[in-house]
Design a protein around this nucleic acid. Structure first.
Lengths: 308, 308
DNA sequence: TTGTAGGCGTTATCAG
DNA sequence: CTGATAACGCCTACAA
């Protein structure tokens, strides 16, 4: 094209402040260039999903997409996630990424006629795209670390096991323990809430058992920080009196006292993988990469040998 | 209408899986029912903005709007916020809410032809809607609390003062101190970063001064938690050896050791006020409510009388 | 009441 | 290669 003409057009665009109307374009071309992102609503400010949104949006914008975000209230309203998906479809999203890591059961039962990608869904359905989460490496190394310290009574601070997300982690932990020649005593499993206060309560329960655990693994970092609070209140110290391991590797792990040993579950990578998978699905490209995220053990200061 | 007919229509809708096309509707009616939300990108997972997005979205959906979220990278790319606003306008948003609390300077210089609402913008421009933040009550009560304990050497752990957001808090603190008959010694101001690690570094700087402060106020909770880490590393304890006060009232404040005394800056209310203001602006209703958020002092365990 | 034409802003197609 | 025109799906206004 004539560069002179291009300039003149640019000038006129500036002059009149012309902006293309995306809705009209979308209507005409049959493509909205919009995708939906569904994350879990988490009360009490868990920073995990904040980063998921940030990195997902970054990836999407880089590819020319805009993102419609919904926080699915899987806790108090089982239908909510389906409503979110419905709203998104009315907006003609070209696909939906679900990053609730096992809270998406309700979605399986309703008709969605755009590409959809799950992340950490517990069963690999044949027709459904799913970013697999390999929980094992992180749990395996974490348990091995504890076993090498000589721990035999390892406890688990879990969220509600009726939620598949938490059930999956529980199962992965049991498998990891079996691999390391130890077993998970049911009395040492505290089923609370995967929140700050849930962790605090759960640790109290575990410490009140007749023979408390010498090491405790937590279903996420937020619960682990709650557990730290309980320990402090009882005059105990993680990394000295009891071993404590979290899950997620939130930034705060580096700033707790002691710094929290944990299993990495990086939002940036998870968001990236999920978007890539969705993009493949939308472009219905031939290759179907088998996306998998591997958890990783992160050693810091909150573990120690068993006390007495 | 004939309820029988309504039913039949509903049935057919079910039958054929009809969904209205929002883009077409928007085009025809000239209303997109979409609004934009711009928040700050914060590195290292600050949970504050996560809640802002959650509650803003809830409020918007309740009024029939969908939300386009952007994280403005005010740190490394000053133009980014303007690009975000431009993208939103191409999507025909009916208005834009900016919740960056003083990081929005770049936006003032570019033409935006939809209603826009700021939050905590430091100067009240005449034509611009702004949810005012009243920093004083929180700071006033916090400083009074310290003065009643007998503190005279009060330090401030700040983010970079070249950013108006942090400058505003700094000014509010100085005013609050003056009201309480004390003054802020410039040697006791550590200008670092409003992040976990920034707080840790800043506290180190303050403790290395010839005459360290006996109490330290922080520009946010995240920095305060970082400061706690430094204190622990030096064998000091907040609430015993030194008084520490945060800002934001994140949930984590209740789970630090000791629980963090802070100034409340509630994301839920801030998001709600901002949405209400934007709604008034969009509906160009006659009444222009003067929305203001008042900070509030929250007493917990991290303060104490000055040591020796 | 029921039905139909015209237009929203853009793209794509098809003559010229 | 340029320029006119139909179509995208829905809404509104007007006519029957």
């Amino acid at each position: 094209m004539d560069p002179r003409l291009v300039r003149r057009v640019q000038a006129v665009i500036q002059e009149f402040g012309y902006r293309p109307n995306f809705q009209a374009r979308a209507l005409a071309r049959g493509r909205s260039h919009t995708i939906g992102l569904i994350v879990s609503e988490i009360t009490g400010g868990n920073p995990f999903f904040s980063e998921i949104i940030l990195y997902f949006e970054r990836a999407a914008v880089a590819e020319g997409y805009e993102v419609l975000v919904s926080f699915a209230d899987t806790e108090t309203n089982p239908d909510h996630i389906a409503q979110c998906a419905a709203r998104m479809q009315e907006r003609q999203v070209e696909g939906i990424a679900v990053l609730t890591f096992g809270m998406e059961e309700q979605l399986a039962h309703c008709a969605i006629d755009v590409p959809i990608v799950y992340s950490g869904a517990d069963h690999d359905l044949p027709g459904v795209r799913n970013v697999r989460i390999n929980y094992l490496p992180g749990y395996r190394d974490a348990v091995r670390h504890l076993v090498e310290f000589g721990h035999e009574r390892i406890g688990y601070l879990s969220g509600r096991l009726s939620w598949s997300s938490l059930r999956t982690r529980y199962d992965a932990l049991r498998k990891a323990m079996k691999l390391n020649g130890v077993s998970l005593d049911k009395d040492l499993v505290a089923e609370c809430d995967h929140t700050w206060s849930g962790g605090a309560m759960g640790m109290n329960l575990l410490l009140n058992t007749p023979k408390p655990p010498t090491a405790v693994m937590c279903c996420n970092d937020v619960a682990a920080v709650g557990a730290l609070k309980t320990l402090a209140a009882r005059g105990l110290q993680a990394g000295k009196d009891i071993a404590l391991i979290g899950f997620d590797d939130l930034t705060i792990c580096q700033f707790t006292q002691p710094a929290l040993t944990t299993i990495q579950f990086a939002p940036r990578e998870l968001a990236g993988l999920s978007f890539q998978a969705l993009l493949e699905e939308i472009q219905s490209s031939a290759k179907k990469t088998n996306f998998e995220y591997k958890t990783r053990f992160i050693l810091r200061e909150s573990t120690c040998a068993p006390r007495n």
